[in-house]
Amino acid sequence: MNALAALLARDLRLALRQSGDVLLAVLFFILGAALFPFAVGPEPNLLLRIGPGLIWVMALLSVLLSLDRLFAPDHEDGTLDLLLLAPAPLEGIVLARILAHWLASGGPLILATPLLAVFFGVPTYALPVLLGSLLLGTLALSALGALGAALTLGARRAGVLVPLLVLPLYIPVLIFGAGAVDAVLTGLAARPHLLLLAAVLVLSLPLAALAGAAALRQAAE
């Protein structure tokens, strides 16, 4: 447990030192979403209708953008081999890495979300659900992304391959995450969507830990 906490602290410190990467992902998140009013026109009702789903898609793409930093640097400089030799279970190491990635990439996105909510005129009463769904969802995105990043470690054109592998797995997260916000906006209960999103999260965390650890072992062979 101590080892995992130390690992988490190390990853967060690294992310903080290279905060340019994080900032870039957040800028991509905001700028990408800001393109849509130019494309579909500034009509407020239309923007509110597509806003929540759009914010969700942009959050998903921003997470995707930072996946290549998950394991690749460690693989290149040999840290990964040491982690594999460490007495801590590799599954736990993968989980710690997922948590660090979530805090470093999902966290800033969630902090930037209220700004986008203003852009698209999302009413204040829907904001808690939007933020809550992102809070649950981005962790699931980090977990499934870690699986994709581990599988493509050392592959040719890994950058192109990761979206192909990860995006299909992201679809349930997107459906329930955006569905929760849509439900609130149409006056329905968001709870079932959030519960299903939590179920996806609970399923994807162990899946990512087990499969991700297996993939890392293969990468090091």
């Binding site: 050392g154 592959a155 040719r156 054109r157 890994a158 391959l161 192909l164 592998l165 995006l167 299909p168």
Partner: peptide
């Protein structure tokens, strides 16, 4: 997409 990802991943290394 899973099938296509499987095929792409098989030949990516």
């Amino acid at each position: 997409f899973l099938y296509l990802g499987h095929m792409a991943l098989t030949h990516a290394f």
